[in-house]
Write a protein that binds this DNA or RNA. Sequence first.
RNA 1: GGCUCGUUAGCUCAGUUGGUAGAGCAGCGGAUUGAAAAUCCGCGUGUCCUUGGUUCGAUUCCGAGACGAGCCA
Length: 316
Amino acid sequence: MNQHPPAIFIMGPTASGKTAAAMHLLESGLPVELISVDSALVFKDMDIGTAKPTKAELARAPHHLIDIIAPTEVYSAAQFRLDALALMADITARGKVPVLVGGTMLYFNTLQQGMHDLPTADAELRAQLHAEADLIGWPAMHGKLAVLDPITAARLEPTDTQRIERALEVCILSGKAMSAILAEPAREILPYNLLKIALVPSDRAVLHQRIALRFEQMLEGGLFDEVRMLREKYPLSLDLPSMRCVGYRQAWEYLEGEIDLKTCREKGLAATRQLAKRQLTWLRGMADLTTLDCVATETSHEVMHHHVMHVTKNNK
RNA sequence: GGCUCGUUAGCUCAGUUGGUAGAGCAGCGGAUUGAAAAUCCGCGUGUCCUUGGUUCGAUUCCGAGACGAGCCA
């Protein structure tokens, strides 16, 4: 018997209708609070390109973890885990059920699996490592990692710059091999009774159509103006996580005159489709999912409502 | 109307001195532990426009046709 309180995950690729699904639950009167699980929605002033719920929608259906940092700042899976755990405890204490809705599958995964006791990211050290890599190249950095942590080096491609950098950072800051830390027992599992709903398209082509439609709406809705505004308001660069978000990177390149509008549209669309594909890959590997077809919106909402009602009732 | 060039993967194009072909992008599959909308790995999906001829064998050479682009009328 599971004595833990309930919590609900609503997961799905971009443009699968997660926001609508979450709002449907809230507005049908179920005792829930929403937590966003999205690495792009955390940024203030990035509204159009992230397809953030509108001000009106957020007023009707408040989401936690939206607009919490500036586009110059960095968020992380580890920070998300801490933030989400605190919010879930609060919501549960208020007698409500936390609904975690979003598309950042690493965050969902981290929340469920917990994290090992790895050192926090260190911007200064990363800058040093990056400068070194510029001099000797990433294959040589991979070679250095092979000395410090052969197990992790064997797991990583010499081209996987981001993970090589992180593994070196972990070794240097902790004095231990990352693989040694990961071999230690993981932290406790999430103390909630989970209902995990996955919104998956029965037809990928339909999702692609939705993505195209939404991207067009973003362009018409002023994505370029938004990026111009962001660049005036903040000291941004293309290597910041915020500006690496799908759509923003391509809009930036267009505004710089590096690509024309047609190319911007094509690259933006392709990047969004590729994002959706990676999200679906994550979902295929997850256990205990209640999978609903995001193409059949009304049916899915009904079924989801039924499941959630069942869970929230058992909470009493 | 005449001449020239072109037609090869979903797109842009290479290539085959005649032995049924390969890049980039797109797409598809996978990995994923403080950047994750990130980062990385794997996979070629084809009436080589059609049709006659030459040939053991034609996507390749020759003829005709279709379509497209350009130049001349």
